[in-house]
Design a protein around this nucleic acid. Structure first.
Length: 487
RNA sequence: GUCCCUAUCGUCUAGAGGCCUAGGACACUGCCUUUUCACGGCGGCGACCGGGGUUCGACUCCCCGUGGGGACGCCA
């Protein structure tokens, strides 16, 4: 036994890639479990045999692992328990708690439309509810719940309080389909009971399912869990977030270069808050999370704020870890040569400078590549400011030539690889560049723009020249300055 | 249409009857700083859906409207 009886689960269906809304649900479950000293479990709801696919299950598992939220007990797959569910349904039929329905889908659909037309709630007409014998000429049947006709089903939601449903609004929902496969509303209860789930934390699109499920808990004579319904995550159009109105695949955020803790931090603030605090570590989220503080209305997914949070986590991330992520997830941003240099001491020194200035890990990779590439980087010299004034261009080149000759001499006399090893530091480069500018009648910006462009391979680099020159291999700097002078 | 949920800046939110001339964050924007971009610092713009109650006093409590969302599947 754990110190707590709290057991929660995340129960996605593998009919699509792990959805960002699903991640938020998983997160709230996970946070609650961890904080209460309970367990976080996983169940794959694959009873829709046609739409469930292995690749989606794989994606869900990979993504959850990436996010650091893994199941603490073996994963339950509903498709492996079909017979078990069927037996329970049959037993309920014997007990008079459910019944066989011989209606065809077309017949059901017809009464549903008729009721809608009459201004009533669209539901099953209950044709077979009191039927004792199979319908003449029909062999296949579904099993429906014999939901009470009168009374009220009530429950206390941990985020919304009391919710009541009059029985006449609840349908005799299907538990077992004609093909023998059980439905969601049925199996979710059996599994939650058998997995000993104490708290059902899920999206509020399930509020309407709750009375049906409560009927099942009672029918099974099982203890009901505590329910907590989370507000929906909305797209920019304020509708439930879907592929149409936003990027919903979790893996897409990984590919973009988001850190898992940043995504989680952003998601936890969608529907939950702790005063004015915006940034949270996983430990803080676990310590501070309270279901009582969960918001009740939907929250629009704001990708700009996500980017900002990502940038903040980038500043706080361990540089070594960032290096690993770059190697694992962003190999495509490198050449063979620059990828190899990722293991160098130079790369390790670069990351702490680069990471706080970029937002995405992908951008970190894009900044690293040209700095690690041994050769010259292609430069579009047409955007350089010196094109505006030929006389300035001449002066700049003269200044660069002076610098290059001085530094080459320095390297040669010291027999070293970098200017830093020859004693030149940030302040030294600063001083040198400024004095050369003064001597040639140039502004600092005039000189640095072309140098930066050619040396870093970027029009704007996340690392300043003063920091870069001392640590970068002189041979490469020299090569690139040479290219600059020739342009 | 029916049922359920919901309503503070454009967005995420603070606010548990007087602390509110409503706070923070993102975005936008002005200035400063600056070797580009960015970061940072100091400002600005910007909201309690409407109407009734309850109360000495409502952003906060109640009711009604209205708006928004969700559900109404032999999907989950």
């Amino acid at each position: 036994m754990t110190s707590s009886s709290v057991r929660v689960r995340f129960a996605p269906s593998p009919t699509g890639f792990l959805h960002i809304g699903g991640v938020r649900t998983a997160l709230f479950n996970y946070l609650y479990a961890k904080q209460q000293g309970g367990k976080f479990l996983l169940r794959i709801e694959d009873t829709d045999l046609d739409r469930s696919e292995q690749r989606f299950t794989d994606d869900i598992l990979t993504s959850l692992k990436w996010l650091g939220m893994e199941a603490e007990e073996p994963i339950l797959y509903q498709s492996q328990r079909l017979d078990h569910y069927k037996k329970i349904a049959d037993r309920m039929v014997d007990q008079g708690l459910a019944y066989r329905c011989y209606c065809t889908e077309a017949e059901v659909e017809a009464t549903r439309e008729q009721l809608m037309k009459e201004g009533k709630k669209a539901m099953y007409g209950r044709t077979c509810r009191e039927r004792k014998e199979p319908l003449e000429g029909r062999t296949s049947y579904a099993i429906r719940a014999k939901f009470p006709l009168t009374g009220t089903t009530s429950f206390t939601d941990m985020v919304r309080g009391e919710i009541h449903f009059p029985s006449e609004d609840i349908d005799d929902f299907v538990m077992i389909r004609t093909n023998g496969v059980p439905t969601y509303n049925f199996v979710v209860v059996i599994d939650d009971v058998e997995m000993n789930i104490s708290h059902v934390i899920r999206g509020d699109d399930h509020i309407n399912n709750t009375p049906k499920q409560i009927y099942l808990y009672d029918a099974l004579q099982a203890k009901k869990p505590v329910f907590a319904h989370l507000p929906m995550i909305l797209g920019q159009d304020k509708k439930k977030l879907s592929k149409r109105n936003g990027e919903t695949s979790t893996n897409a955020y990984r590919v973009e270069g988001y850190l898992p803790e940043a995504l989680l931090n952003f998601l936890v603030r969608l529907g939950w808050s702790h005063g004015d605090q915006e940034l949270f570590t996983m430990e803080e989220m676990i310590a501070l999370f309270k279901l009582e503080n969960v918001q009740v209305s939907g929250a629009v997914f704001n990708s700009e704020k996500l980017l900002w949070i990502q940038g903040e986590h980038m500043k706080r991330a361990n540089p070594e870890r960032l290096g690993k992520i770059v190697k694992e997830d962003f190999k495509s941003k490198f050449s063979d040569a620059s990828f190899k240099e990722l293991d160098s001491a130079f790369a390790a020194k670069l990351i702490p400078f680069l990471a706080p200035k970029v937002k995405l890990v992908k951008e970190l990779a894009e900044q690293l590549h040209p700095l690690l590439e041994p050769g010259v980087m292609p430069v579009d010299a047409s955007i350089l400011k010196w094109n505006k004034d030929e006389s300035v261009k001449v002066k700049i080149k003269a200044a660069i030539d002076v610098l290059r000759n001085e530094w080459r001499a320095l390297i040669e006399s010291n027999q070293k690889n970098t200017l830093g090893e020859c004693g030149l530091d940030h302040a030294g480069v600063d001083l040198k560049l400024r004095s050369v500018c003064e001597a040639n009648g140039l502004k600092l910006g005039d000189l640095t723009q072309p140098m930066r462009h050619f040396v870093t391979g970027h029009a704007s680099s996340a690392i300043g020249l003063f920091d870069l020159f001392p640590m970068m291999n002189w041979k490469i700097i020299n090569l690139r300055l040479e290219a600059c002078l020739k342009s």
